[in-house]
Design a protein around this nucleic acid. Sequence first.
DNA 1: GTGCAGTAGTTGATCAGATACAGTACTTGC
DNA 2: GCAAGTACTGTATCTGATCAACTACTGCAC
Lengths: 124, 124
Amino acid sequence: MQKESGATSDGGADAFAADLLRGHTDTIVLGVLRREDRYGFEIYKAIRDATGGDYEIKEATLYAAYRRLVKDGLVEAYWGDESQGGRRKYYRITDAGRAVYRRNVDAWVATRRTIDSLLDLKGS
Amino acid sequence: MQKESGATSDGGADAFAADLLRGHTDTIVLGVLRREDRYGFEIYKAIRDATGGDYEIKEATLYAAYRRLVKDGLVEAYWGDESQGGRRKYYRITDAGRAVYRRNVDAWVATRRTIDSLLDLKGS
DNA sequence: GTGCAGTAGTTGATCAGATACAGTACTTGC
DNA sequence: GCAAGTACTGTATCTGATCAACTACTGCAC
């Protein structure tokens, strides 16, 4: 964060730092997959669109997250129908993934409360 | 994050990952200093106590943050009265620091909203 | 029919923040 | 005297995010 905090300088309208979501990427991906299987690029677009486009998790970041999630057994990957040409790798959340997701949501709620209290923010 | 996500394994009661606050440390420190000057260890204790003790930002993390904030001109450091023995380095927030703090709080609110919507959390 | 934009996936190098670990130095209580 | 707590600092390492590049296919405009 604070890449732009040259304090007196800096060009004002900084599209808010993506670093602020750091650590939550895995949970966000699990959250998207919780409803239905999706392929990588689709998840990328879903996240980008869900935030009105002013925010995106970079592709490289997401593909790294997929690798991590597969390695940890939280999601499973399988290739989609390639007859149409463009290959698509789909991801499916596992039971272990759902369990971790629930725990991470709880952790997020706790984190949110912690930061809010440290910044003296009560409601929105 | 997810250091403990051995999925099927892992010992359950993981005190929530400090990594989740990653990127917010500077803002939290500025938030503490916004009211009055404090010395390093005092800020550490304030954060630790404010979260009921189940969470802490490690000393090394905070001292690294202080260095960063001073370097960026967001806080100023000065040595306290050493006649009493124990040396204490106090930190004072600058005008630039207050400006960055306000911007970062806005960024945090936006981030919070973004994650909430991605995780389908409406209220608390 | 070539080039370009968009879709889709992937990798290697690098950066920065958080942490572990280790250390210095002083104070207080036993 | 010595252990525990206060207070500050530096170095090394880990990890997640990002950049920059790459492969490969599709569809469209020129």
